[in-house]
Simulated scan of single mutants.
Amino acid sequence: MSDHPNPLYELGRRPPGLPPGGLVSRPVRRRLRRARMEPLLWLSDGPVDAPASAYPAPAGFQAVLLHDQAGPADWWETEALDPERSSDPDDHPVEPVLREFWSAVIPEPEEGEEAENEELIAPFGPAWPGLAAAGSPVRDPEAAAAELAAACMREGWFGRPRLALVPAGRGADVPAAIGWGGPLNHENDTARISAVLRSWEDRFGARVLALGFDRLDLYVAAPPRTLVEALPVAAEHFAFCPDNVRQGSGTVRAYAEEALIGRDHWSFWWD
């Protein structure tokens, strides 16, 4: 038995069936003690050519891709990962989180701009519209997620991805477990991001495929099939990642039509 409570110490340099790799460590504070370096995740030494699900993750770990597309190379070696910035996803029910996000991103209209702001979030108003209804998966989420990840890799969407093993009970908890800094300009506590991902796992069969410096890619087994279904999902996306709408489709309605109906790939980036 290991003297260390951190399960990463058990992995060593190369867990069975995985490419060569090693531990990525960060300073972690334990109550009033001085911070000490502790492993945060296991990472392959070089790029891999298969989805994370193709590799055997030990019990208690989640396999995920970390990529360098549209971000600094080796960003995981910088302060982009900081476990001190994350609380516990269990402490954050999803609806209050999204309601607060929504309130924060709804602009205060200046004189003469009321119509423009109304168009941005139509058919919704300033009040939080509530959670979208759950969808019905049409395929096995795990197998379909692997197929989508493989297609993204062939298209170069993930650049030169590394394989990471993260001690987490479910894929949605990976960002919180490593203190991922991708959405820092929007939300500092990554546990609140994971709380939303947990809900999307449960309602839409979402699976975390990859993390970049400021990008998150998901497979979705039960995407909305009609505009009526897509609009409340688009409202959640706007609250979760306003840059997707503001610097993308331009309005919540256009985003629902262009990026959500029947789309099993949800990609988010924070400017």
Results as ranks from 00 to 15, higher is better:
156 G>L: 07
170 R>T: 12
181 G>W: 00
174 V>R: 02
166 V>Y: 07
185 N>A: 14
183 P>Q: 10
161 P>F: 11
183 P>S: 14
156 G>N: 11
164 A>W: 05
178 I>R: 02
178 I>Y: 11
185 N>R: 15
164 A>H: 07
155 E>F: 07
171 G>A: 12
177 A>P: 07
185 N>I: 14
166 V>Q: 06
168 A>Q: 04
167 P>W: 03
166 V>K: 07
170 R>G: 12
186 H>G: 02
159 G>V: 08
168 A>D: 06
166 V>P: 04
160 R>I: 00
156 G>H: 10
173 D>C: 08
180 W>S: 02
176 A>W: 12
173 D>W: 05
182 G>F: 02
163 L>S: 06
177 A>C: 13
159 G>A: 12
158 F>I: 02
174 V>E: 07
181 G>L: 01
186 H>T: 10
157 W>E: 15
161 P>W: 01
176 A>K: 02
157 W>N: 12
171 G>L: 12
174 V>T: 13
174 V>K: 12
159 G>Y: 08
164 A>Y: 03
175 P>S: 10
174 V>S: 08
169 G>Y: 03
157 W>A: 15
157 W>C: 14
158 F>D: 00
177 A>R: 09
162 R>C: 00
175 P>H: 09
162 R>T: 00
161 P>Q: 09
170 R>H: 13
169 G>E: 14
167 P>M: 03
186 H>C: 08
185 N>D: 13
165 L>F: 13
181 G>D: 05
173 D>S: 15
155 E>R: 12
161 P>Y: 10
180 W>A: 04
185 N>Q: 14
155 E>D: 14
174 V>I: 14
163 L>A: 07
155 E>C: 10
176 A>I: 13
178 I>N: 01
177 A>S: 15
161 P>C: 13
159 G>F: 05
165 L>A: 09
166 V>I: 13
159 G>D: 06
177 A>D: 09
157 W>K: 13
185 N>C: 14
180 W>T: 02
175 P>Y: 04
180 W>K: 03
183 P>L: 04
171 G>S: 12
166 V>W: 00
162 R>S: 06
159 G>S: 11
164 A>R: 05
162 R>G: 00
178 I>L: 15
177 A>K: 03
163 L>W: 05
177 A>L: 01
165 L>Y: 09
171 G>W: 03
184 L>E: 04
168 A>C: 10
183 P>Y: 04
181 G>N: 11
159 G>E: 04
165 L>R: 08
158 F>Q: 11
155 E>G: 11
172 A>V: 13
162 R>H: 15
180 W>I: 06
184 L>I: 10
173 D>Y: 04
180 W>R: 01
165 L>H: 09
159 G>W: 03
163 L>H: 04
175 P>F: 05
174 V>W: 01
160 R>A: 13
167 P>C: 05
186 H>L: 07
156 G>I: 11
173 D>G: 09
169 G>R: 15
157 W>Q: 14
184 L>R: 06
157 W>V: 12
179 G>P: 03
185 N>L: 15
176 A>P: 10
155 E>Q: 11
157 W>Y: 12
172 A>I: 07
171 G>V: 02
170 R>L: 08
155 E>Y: 06
168 A>L: 07
178 I>W: 00
183 P>K: 01
165 L>D: 07
182 G>T: 01
159 G>H: 05
174 V>M: 09
164 A>G: 10
178 I>C: 02
164 A>E: 09
174 V>C: 13
162 R>M: 06
